[in-house]
Design a protein around this nucleic acid. Structure first.
Length: 854
RNA sequence: GCGAGAGUGGCGGAACCGGCAGACGCACUGGAUUUAGGAUCCAGCGGGCAACCGUGGGGGUUCGAAUCCCCCCUCUCGCACCA
C-alpha cells in the first residue's frame, strides 16, 4: 500500500524551516487534501448547493452522465466520465445557467443475481449495499449532483411506471409476444442477453450457449425505424461516428419482394432482393435451413434424409461460427423446383448454410454471375452461371471464364425486353412489370429487428401480464401496479426464481376473475435506462412516469456524456422510447439528447484496465494518496475527453504538484494580498502590471472558450498553468516599489482560483476562503475578459523570406503596411537571405506575418 | 471486404478558418538552495558541428501546408455471407 506521507514528505521538512530567506516569519500551512476536501464537502452539503429547481428566469441546462450499474466499486472510467460532467456542470452554473445535474443507479441486472446465487445475499441487499458504498465514493470526489433526485431503477416506485408504460404499449400493439430464437445457457437454465454471450459461451459458467426457440416479449422498435434513421441526418450535436453506427444498425435497404411460384405444387417462395435488375440471371434458389419450406419441400422425396441431416447439422452449429468469415458455403438440393417469374425457367431449390432466416424472407434468389456468394456456390455444385449485367463499356462477358461475380451496376443484357437498360432503371421497371402480375412489390427492408425485452431472470422489473386459459394474455389492471418482485425467493434451485415461486405465479384473470398464471419473465435492464432521464426531472412524482410540466421545462438533455460502448443499444432504445412517449402525448421532444459527448477509455500500459490484466488503478487509492482534486485534475488534463486516456502515476504526481504550487504561491503572498481588493479596471499603465493583466485576460478568454465552446478541457488546464507560471515570475521587489500594483496581483490569483474551481473545487474554495471570501466559488460569477486586453499595442510580427521564418519584428499594432514592409526589408537577417535581389512579391497578413518572396 | 477515426519530440498531448510546429505536463540534463533530496525554485530540452532537415511515406495546390487535394502504408473502432 502506498504510504501517505510519501506524497507530503516535501512539506514536512520544508515547513519546519520556512521563513528564513526573505526575512519574514509566517507559519505556513501544508496542503492536506483530505482535510480540505472533507471540510468543503461538508460545507457544500450543508448549504444544499447542488439542489436545483425549475426557474423560468434563467436559461436551463440539463447535463447528465450515463448512470452506473452499482457494482460497489467506482472505477477510473466512472471517475473520468463524472469529472468531465462535473467541470461542465460547474462551469455552466457559474455562467448563469440553471443546471440540472443528476445521478442514479442502473440497479437491476445479472451481477447482483449471480452474487445472490454464490453468496446467498439477496440482490436487493447486495445492490443497496453497493449503492451506499458508491454514493460515498461519488461524494468523496466532490461531484455536484443534486442527490435529492437520485434514482434507483430497482425501486418499485420507479419500475411501477415502467410497468405502466408496458401496459400502454401492449394496448397499442407496441409490446407483443412472439416465438423467437434466444441464447440459452443449459448450466444456468436461463436466457442470456447477446452481450452476455462471450465467444459463444456463457460469461458466468463458460458453458456453450445454444439457440433455443422460446416465446418472448418484444417492443416494436421497427415501427420507428424510418424516423430513427431520418433523424440521424439532423442530429448535429452527436458524433458522426455514433450516427454512422446507428444508421448501419438500422440498415435500410430499398428493394423488392418477388414471388417464385413452386413447380409441381401449390404456393411459392418469396425472396427479398435489392438487385431486381439481375432477375434474369437467377438460376437457382437458396433457402435458410430454418426456412419453413426447407424441410417441407424435401419431405416425401428421395432427398428427404439428406436434407434433414444437413439442416440438423447446420442448426446445431454455433450461430457465431456460422456467420464467420471463413465459413465455407455449402448446401443441399431439396429435390424441388420453382419458376423464375421472368424467364419461366424451372430452377432448383437448395438449402444453403449462408442464408439467414432473420433477414428478408429467409430465401434468396441466387444470381451467380452477379453475387460472389452465389458464384462460389454455383461453382461448387456445378450450377449454371448467366451474365445479365455488363459493366459500362464492356459488350460481352463469358460466363464460363468468369473468375468472380460482377457485383456492380451496369447495362442489362440477355434480359428480354429489359436488355439495354441501366441497372437502376431496370430495377424499377422489372419490379413494376411483376407488380402488375401480382408477383412482386417494392419494399424497404431494415436490418433492425424488434427489441426482445424478456429475460428469464429474477432481478428485473416484472412484466405486468397474466395468462388466462380462457381469456389469453391479459395486462394487469393499472391499480394493481407495481407488480413487486417477491423477496422470499430461492436462488439455489437454478432456473428462474419467479417461476418457482407459487404465490407469485398464482394470479386472477382481470377479465373473467378465473385462475390465471402470472408472467415470470422480467424486462431487459435497457428498458429502465430508456427513460430515466425523463424521471430525473420529477423523481418523486407519483401520478405518472413524470410531471408533465417539469419534463417540459428540462427536456431535452442538453449534454449527455458517456462511453462509446452504448453507441447503438442504449442510445437507440432511448431514442425509440422518447418517440413512444411523444406519440402518447407525454413528451414534447423528438430526441432525448441534444448533444452527446462520448468519452474515451481509461487505459493503463496500453490496455483497457481490467482485473485479468492486473492493470487496474483504484480511485480510492488515488484519493487516499493525492485527494479528489488531483484525481479529477489529472483525468481531465491528460487527454481531451473523446480520446483514450493513458493513466500515468507520474502524470498524477504532476497534477498534484501543480495544485501544491498554487497553494504555496498563496502561502508566500497571502500577507501581501490579504487586505487588497482585486483590480477591476482597464489595462493598467506600465510594466509589468500591463503584461500580467493581459495574461490574466488572455487566460480567461482561453479557458472560457476551451470549456464552454470546444470542450477541450485539457488545454484549459494548460492555460491556467501558464498563468500560474507567470505568477511565479513576479518579482517581489517590483511589487514593493509599486511598479506592480498588489491589486493586479490579487486579481490574477483570484482569477486562477475561479478558473480552476470546476476542476479542483475543494482546494479552490479553501484558498478562496483564505483570501477572505465568504461565498463558495460555485456561487461566484465566471469572469469576463476585456477585448482591449487581448489586443496588444506592440506585436511580434514574423518575417519570412520565401515562406521560411528568418526574423521577427516588434512593431506597433497599427503600423501601416508600407512602414512594416520597409522595416522588414531593412532587417539585417532579411537582407542576408535576399542577397541584394529585389523582392518579387510581398505577402502581408496583418498582425501575423510578412512574407517576402525573392 | 465496407464504413468511421487516427498517425506530430523519449512519453501524454498543443497548434482556431492555410500563417512562428512542439503550448502545457511527464521524463531527462544543468544550476541554485540544502547536512541530505526522490522536496522546492531557476534554466535547458525535435535532429544536425553547421548550412539545413523535420508533423507515417510519395506527389500536388499555394507566397506559405501538421492543416487543403490525389495515391500509398500503418493502427484503432464499428459493421460484416444482409441477399
Amino acid at each position: 500500500m502506498l504510504n501517505r506521507t510519501d506524497a507530503f514528505s516535501g512539506f514536512e521538512s520544508r515547513n519546519e524551516k520556512r521563513g528564513g530567506g526573505k526575512g519574514e516569519t509566517m507559519t505556513s500551512r501544508k496542503y492536506n487534501p483530505h482535510e480540505v476536501e472533507e471540510k468543503w464537502q461538508a460545507v457544500w452539503e450543508k448549504r444544499g448547493m447542488f439542489r436545483v429547481t425549475e426557474d423560468p428566469k434563467r436559461p436551463k441546462y440539463y447535463l447528465m452522465e450515463m448512470f452506473p450499474y452499482p457494482s460497489g466499486n467506482l472505477h477510473m472510467g466512472h471517475v473520468r466520465n463524472y469529472s468531465i460532467g462535473d467541470v461542465l456542470a460547474r462551469y455552466r452554473r457559474m455562467n448563469g445557467w440553471n443546471v440540472l445535474h443528476p445521478m442514479g443507479w442502473d440497479a437491476f441486472g445479472m451481477p447482483a443475481e449471480n452474487a445472490a446465487i454464490e453468496s446467498g445475499v439477496h440482490p436487493a441487499t447486495h445492490t443497496d449495499r453497493n449503492i451506499q458504498k458508491m454514493i460515498r465514493q461519488l461524494k468523496r470526489m466532490g461531484f455536484s449532483y443534486d442527490w435529492d433526485r437520485e434514482i434507483n431503477t430497482s425501486a418499485p416506485e420507479y419500475y411501477r411506471w415502467e410497468q405502466w408504460l408496458f401496459i400502454q404499449m401492449f394496448r397499442k400493439g407496441l409490446a407483443y409476444r412472439k416465438s423467437s430464437e434466444v441464447n440459452w445457457c443449459q448450466q444456468c437454465q436461463t436466457v442470456l442477453a447477446n452481450e452476455q454471450v462471450e465467444g459463444g459461451k456463457c460469461w458466468r459458467c463458460a458453458r456453450e450457449v445454444v439457440p433455443r426457440e422460446l416465446e418472448q416479449w418484444f417492443f416494436r422498435i421497427t415501427e420507428y425505424a424510418q424516423e430513427l434513421l431520418e433523424e440521424c441526418g439532423r442530429m448535429d450535436g452527436w458524433p458522426e461516428r455514433v450516427l454512422t453506427m446507428q444508421k448501419n444498425w438500422i440498415g435500410r435497404s430499398e428493394g423488392g419482394r418477388i414471388l417464385f411460384p413452386l413447380s409441381d405444387r401449390e404456393g411459392g417462395i418469396e425472396v427479398f432482393t435489392t438487385r431486381q435488375d439481375t432477375l434474369f440471371g437467377a438460376t437457382f434458389m437458396s433457402l435458410a435451413p430454418e426456412h419453413p419450406l426447407a424441410m417441407a419441400l424435401a419431405e416425401g422425396g428421395d432427398r428427404e434424409r439428406e436434407v434433414r441431416a444437413f439442416i440438423d447439422r447446420i442448426r446445431r452449429q454455433d450461430k457465431r461460427s456460422r456467420v464467420s468469415e471463413d465459413y465455407e458455403k455449402e448446401g443441399v438440393f431439396t429435390g424441388a423446383y420453382c419458376t423464375n417469374p421472368v424467364t419461366d425457367e424451372r430452377i432448383p431449390v437448395f438449402v444453403a448454410n449462408f442464408v439467414v432466416m432473420e433477414y428478408g424472407t429467409g430465401a434468396v434468389m441466387a444470381v451467380p454471375a452477379h453475387d460472389q456468394r452465389d458464384f462460389e456456390f454455383a461453382r461448387r455444385y456445378d450450377l449454371p452461371v448467366r451474365v445479365v449485367v455488363l459493366p459500362e463499356g464492356v459488350d460481352h462477358l463469358a460466363a464460363e471464364s468468369l473468375e468472380e461475380a460482377f457485383e456492380g451496376d451496369g447495362i442489362l443484357t440477355d434480359s428480354g425486353p429489359f436488355s439495354g437498360l441501366e441497372s437502376a432503371a431496370a430495377r424499377k421497371k422489372i419490379t413494376a412489370y411483376l407488380e402488375e402480375k401480382g408477383l412482386a412489390e417494392a419494399t424497404v427492408q431494415y436490418r433492425l429487428r424488434d427489441w426482445c425485452i424478456s429475460r428469464q431472470r429474477y432481478w428485473g422489473a416484472p412484466i405486468p401480464v397474466v395468462y388466462c386459459d380462457r381469456c389469453g394474455i391479459q395486462p394487469v389492471p393499472e391499480e394493481d401496479l407495481p407488480i413487486r418482485l417477491p423477496m422470499d425467493v430461492d436462488f439455489q434451485a437454478g432456473g428462474s426464481p419467479l417461476a418457482a415461486h407459487p404465490e407469485f405465479v398464482k394470479a386472477t384473470c382481470p377479465s373473467c376473475q378465473g385462475p390465471a398464471r402470472r408472467e415470470t419473465d422480467t424486462m431487459d435492464t435497457f428498458v429502465e435506462s430508456s427513460w430515466y432521464f425523463d424521471r430525473y426531472t420529477s423523481p418523486h412524482y407519483d401520478q405518472g412516469m413524470f410531471d408533465p410540466e417539469k419534463v417540459d421545462y428540462w427536456m431535452p438533455v442538453d449534454l449527455y456524456i458517456g462511453g462509446i460502448e452504448h453507441a447503438v443499444l442504449h442510445l437507440l432504445y432511448s431514442r425509440f422510447y422518447t418517440r413512444v412517449l411523444r406519440d402518447m402525448g407525454m413528451l414534447k421532444v423528438d430526441e432525448p439528447f441534444r448533444n452527446l459527448l462520448t468519452q474515451g477509455m481509461v487505459i493503463k500500459d496500453g490496455a483497457k484496465m481490467s482485473k485479468s490484466k492486473g492493470n487496474v488503478v483504484d480511485p480510492d487509492a488515488m484519493i487516499r494518496r493525492y485527494g479528489a482534486d488531483t484525481t479529477r485534475l489529472f483525468s481531465l488534463f491528460a487527454a481531451p475527453p473523446e480520446k483514450d486516456l493513458e493513466w500515468s502515476e507520474q502524470g498524477v504526481e504532476g497534477a498534484f504538484r501543480f495544485l501544491q504550487r498554487i497553494w504555496r504561491w498563496l502561502e508566500e503572498w497571502r500577507e501581501e494580498l490579504i487586505d487588497v481588493s482585486p483590480y477591476d479596471g482597464p489595462v493598467p499603465a506600465g510594466e509589468p502590471a500591463a503584461s500580467l493583466y493581459r495574461k490574466v485576460h488572455e487566460t480567461i478568454y482561453r479557458v472560457t472558450r476551451d470549456i464552454g465552446e470546444r470542450l477541450h478541457l485539457n488545454t484549459a488546464v494548460s492555460a491556467i498553468m501558464e498563468l500560474v507560471n507567470e505568477l511565479y515570475q513576479v518579482d517581489r521587489s517590483r511589487v514593493r516599489e509599486g511598479a506592480l500594483e498588489r491589486s493586479v496581483l490579487r486579481m490574477a490569483i483570484e482569477t486562477v482560483l475561479i478558473l480552476l474551481s470546476p476542476y479542483a473545487p475543494h482546494i479552490a474554495d479553501e484558498l478562496w476562503a483564505g483570501l477572505g471570501h465568504e461565498k463558495p466559488l460555485l456561487e461566484v460569477p465566471w469572469p469576463t475578459f476585456r477585448e482591449e486586453a487581448l489586443r496588444k499595442d506592440e506585436i511580434t510580427l514574423v518575417v519570412q523570406v520565401n515562406g521560411k521564418v528568418r526574423s521577427k519584428l516588434q512593431v506597433a499594432r497599427d503600423l501601416p503596411q508600407g512602414e512594416i514592409e520597409r522595416k522588414a526589408l531593412e532587417d539585417e537577417k532579411v537582407q542576408r537571405f535576399l542577397s541584394g535581389k529585389p523582392p518579387k512579391k510581398i505577402v502581408y497578413v496583418p498582425g501575423r506575418l510578412i512574407n517576402i518572396v525573392a
